[in-house]
């Protein structure tokens, strides 16, 4: 511990701690420790990047969705994810980092986003699995974040959570429709669930013992539950749902533990997690390349809109001068 940390807390530090202790909210203009601010900017911007990159695995299927209705639904979902990204960038921005800065960090590869979006979506059933499992896991993670101690983050999460339940339900419906279809369709659904089950469980992050920042985030009430607690909650939720679907979850160790009142489940492949995190997943390269291309191709639109706004501004000023 440094001497500065050991000395008596300042009035600002006491006020900050009071807000945390009282389960109140910290707002943008309040004093906050630098580490709290940094943690939030990193977490919220990573979350925003995930929503933006997260449009791609499903965007991949919009033109090939099996009916006009499915196309419309998928488009609405992807549009929601764009919205989630924007809500979150706004929330992060209140901490003093510009959106352009965060965006540059994403495009340069300096910033991380959720590894789940580096898996590919080879079949239509993956649209079902993503909705059911990936959005399902996201909901598990996000509901407690609605009470995050930082006001703008919590408010963004409330808005997001309201929209997420449609995402999960439409995914479940896709799988259920396939499971009630032909043998081939049932096989497609099962194979897709096999692909997404473990990656979805890893969305909650490394085990508690290997997640050093988790503890501090919980003390600050940014995070309310540990990675392992959330993962357990998710498993307990999806087992009965899988029964309704009639799919098997690909985990031989999955079984009800009467004593704990929870489902036990098998070890996850954390080496795979690290590999994907390190950029060696199925689609890391293509996801970023697509994002950069979209950004570059949109440059003329951004510039034209800005030039037009400047022109209108100038015309207005000239007109006002004439009148005066």
């Amino acid at each position: 511990m440094t001497t500065a940390e050991a000395s008596a807390p300042t009035p600002e530090e006491l006020e900050f701690q009071r807000l945390i202790d009282e389960d109140s909210r910290v707002e943008p203009t309040d004093w906050m420790p630098d580490a709290y601010r940094k943690t939030l900017v990193r977490q919220i911007s990573q979350h925003a990047h995930s929503e933006i990159i997260g449009m791609q695995p499903e965007g991949n299927w919009i033109t090939r969705a099996p009916s006009l209705k499915r196309k419309a639904i998928l488009m609405a979902k992807v549009q929601d994810e764009a919205g989630h990204g924007l809500y979150l960038y706004s929330a992060a921005q209140t901490l003093g980092t510009t959106r352009d800065t965060m965006y540059e960090q994403l495009l340069s590869g300096a910033a991380k986003y959720s590894s789940i979006f580096n898996y590919t979506t080879p079949t239509w059933a993956d649209m079902g699995s993503i909705g059911w499992l990936v959005d399902g896991a996201a909901i598990c993670n996000q509901v407690p974040l609605c009470r995050a101690s930082y006001g703008p983050y919590g408010r963004a999460m409330v808005r997001i959570c309201k929209e997420e339940s449609f995402h999960q339900r439409q995914g479940f419906e896709i799988l259920l429709t396939l499971m009630r279809g032909s043998d081939e369709q049932r096989r497609m659904a099962q194979e897709s669930v096999n692909r997404w089950y473990a990656p979805a469980l890893m969305m909650f992050g490394p085990p508690d013992g290997e997640s050093p920042n988790s503890q501090r985030s919980m003390a600050w009430k940014i995070k309310r539950f540990s990675n392992d607690d959330l993962r357990q909650r998710f498993v307990d939720m999806i087992v009965p749902q899988a029964e309704v679907l009639g799919v098997t979850l690909p985990d031989p160790d999955l079984k009800w533990n009467e004593e704990r009142g929870h489902y036990d489940f098998g070890e996850l492949d954390w080496d795979e997690f690290s590999e994907v995190l390190a950029g060696r997943g199925q689609a890391n390269t293509i996801r970023l390349a697509n994002r950069r291309e979209a950004h570059e191709e949109g440059a003329w639109v951004r510039e034209a809109a800005r030039a037009y706004a400047a022109r209108v501004d100038a015309d207005c000023s000239a007109l006002l001068e004439k009148v005066a």
Binding site: T94, G96, P152
Partner: peptide, 17 residues
């Protein structure tokens, strides 16, 4: 909403509303 007086929203491609 940005903290009034903060840097957020300034020097960006498009202004904040």
């Amino acid at each position: 909403m940005a903290a009034p007086g903060s840097e957020a929203g300034k020097h960006e491609t498009w202004p904040l509303w």
